[in-house]
């Protein structure tokens, strides 16, 4: 029985399979967005380079550190629950959510600055891509926070154990996807010229 369980866990990714179908759909959408950005840039290289230089790369660095670190904290949460440590799981998830809040605050500050400067989706093609891509991702961070919060509530009630923790792995997989997308978005929009 144990061997069968091990083989099964190796054939499928951690968490509910449905979230993986959802993750692949999300990745496909972001992938198409990235491709559209790169090929639109081909026809507007100077404009993209000029306006990319106006972005706050310090904020982007902080946000990249925040998401990578939150993903690591989620890894620790999954490891804790696999050891039947619900309290540890909750603590690591709350730490991950703290990093998520940091991301939202920093990104929100960036948006507020853009709004003050009168930058809109219609300002130019670069800002259209920048604002829509990052805001699409921003919404995914919020969605991930909601999922992690739901997992925290259940974990806090002792709803997961070393034997049954699919929910923790499902939330973790979604959160890692949010991190994964940002890892491409950061250099593409802020650095590559």
């Amino acid at each position: 029985m144990q061997a069968q369980s091990t083989i099964e866990s190796n054939r499928f990714p951690p968490g509910d399979l449905a979230i993986w179908v959802f993750i692949l759909a999300e990745l496909a959408a972001f992938g198409a967005f990235f491709g559209a950005y790169a090929f639109t840039r081909m026809r507007n290289v100077e404009m993209f380079n000029q306006y990319q230089a106006t972005l706050d790369s310090d904020a982007a660095l902080i946000n990249t550190f925040a998401l990578i670190t939150s993903s690591y904290f989620v890894v620790r949460a999954v490891a804790a629950i696999r050891e039947d440590d619900s309290r540890g799981c909750v603590r690591w998830l709350l730490a991950a959510m703290g990093m998520g809040v940091l991301f939202l605050v920093v990104k929100g500050h960036e948006y507020a600055h853009h709004i003050e400067e009168g930058i809109r989706l219609s300002t130019n093609t670069f800002y259209m891509f920048y604002l829509s891509l990052t805001f699409f991702h921003f919404m995914h961070v919020i969605m991930g926070m909601v999922i992690l919060a739901a997992v925290v509530v259940k974990a806090n009630r002792g709803g997961y154990s070393d034997r049954e923790h699919t929910g923790v792995e499902t939330g973790a997989s979604y959160w890692h996807m949010v991190d994964l997308v940002w890892l491409i978005l950061f250099p593409l929009v802020y650095i590559m010229r």
Binding site: R11, P14, A38, S71, H176, D179
Partner: peptide, 29 residues
């Protein structure tokens, strides 16, 4: 982080494929 290193078969590859496709498109552009 996602733990796909330990997964065998179909589910081992979607994330790698996703990185390869948009990554290839961006690199080509």
């Amino acid at each position: 982080f996602m733990g796909l290193k330990r997964v065998r078969g179909f589910w081992r590859w979607p994330v790698s494929l996703w990185l390869f496709l948009p990554g290839g498109l961006i690199g080509a552009a």
